[in-house]
């Protein structure tokens, strides 16, 4: 028996199919327009094709994410808060704090050992510190989004950035450029300010360790670095940080079929430990975080890892 979790976010659609043990059979992330029905259809079709599972053979389909109510033929919905908690508990057992930053929103979720939500906080309507914010930053600095990490990690983060509004930040960045500030320093300082903003969410639920970061922004080495630095602790990033919500949804579907409520879950299918971001500047060759080239940085406070099933 297989189940599918579908996470229709603001800028991406994710689909995950798990087998009866909770192991991931296939997953897909599709970039799309805002809450796109076409994107979610593509993600579902792709993941079905990859898994070889027929749509009619799926026990249940659980939808999550901002657009969860738009997912076709979903058996039921769960919020992304519940699903990220569930997915991270399976991928990284023992996690206490999940920081999820997606295209338009950010969340801090404190979870217990069973992956149940103890408390959560999310941004209201401000896109500050979300993927959207980094789009604006890259545009203002006239660099490609994929180059922003290197730029920020090479800069000094001591410029004062007061506005965290995605709209007004562009104006402020232009002002800093006009004053002669170096783009790398601006990028670093904005990342530092965004991390401080995220700490505000964390403060609402209370700090806890270990910390796992999920969502599209977790792909950003700079965002993770500055968050870890601000938190003063390690931040782990799953191998596929965008699929934890869909994965959690699929596991919740499995629970509903099996009637089990205390299953920690089956972790991702293979263990991976991020070996990049070391002080010697070596790349990680096996995960998405390490594939990009970057300058050596001080990573004293930061490691990224994907936790596999740590159960005995």
């Amino acid at each position: 028996m297989h189940t599918m979790g579908v996470d229709l976010g603001s800028t991406t659609a994710k689909a995950v199919i798990v087998d009866g043990t909770g192991a991931i059979v296939a997953h897909r992330v599709v970039q799309m327009g805002a809450v796109s029905r076409r994107g979610v259809t593509a993600a579902i079709e792709d993941v079905l094709r990859e898994s070889g599972v027929e749509r009619g053979d799926l026990g249940v389909v659980i939808a999550t994410g901002y657009g969860r109510r738009l997912v076709p033929d979903a058996t039921r919905t769960f919020t992304e808060i519940t699903c990220h908690a569930r997915g991270v508990a399976a991928m990284s057992p023992g996690t206490s704090l999940v920081i999820d930053i997606g295209g338009q929103d950010s969340k801090a979720i404190r979870i217990d050992s069973l992956g149940l939500v103890d408390d959560f906080a999310m941004n209201d309507r401000c896109a500050s510190g979300t993927g959207r914010f980094f789009d604006v930053l890259a545009r203002a600095l006239e660099c490609r989004l994929e180059d922003l990490d290197d730029l920020a990690l090479a800069g000094s983060d001591d410029l004062e950035v007061s506005s965290m509004c995605a709209t007004f930040a562009e104006t402020e960045i232009i002002s800093l450029l006009a004053e002669g500030s170096v783009p790398a320093d601006i990028a670093a300082s904005v990342h530092r300010a965004v991390a401080a903003r995220t700490l505000g969410l964390v403060a609402q639920v209370g700090r806890a360790n270990p910390v796992v970061m999920t969502g599209g922004v977790a792909h950003s080495r700079a965002a993770v670095h500055f968050l870890a630095k601000a938190l003063g602790t390690e931040v782990s990033v799953p191998r596929e940080p965008q699929i934890t919500g869909a994965y959690g949804a699929a596991l919740l579907g499995l629970e509903s079929l099996q009637g089990e409520t205390t299953v920690i879950g089956h972790a991702v299918e293979r263990e991976h430990r991020h070996t990049g971001q070391l002080a010697n500047g070596h790349d990680c060759t096996t995960c998405s975080l390490g594939q990009a080239k970057y300058q050596p940085i001080d990573v004293e406070l930061w490691t990224a890892s994907v936790a596999a099933d740590r159960r005995p």
Binding site: Y66, T77, T79, I81, D105, L116, V117, F120
Partner: peptide, 20 residues
Amino acid sequence: ETIRTRIEALVERISRKATV
């Protein structure tokens, strides 16, 4: 819609904890 997510998350939090 953001408020819906927060309310649903509260409801899910309560109901899942009760079930477990």
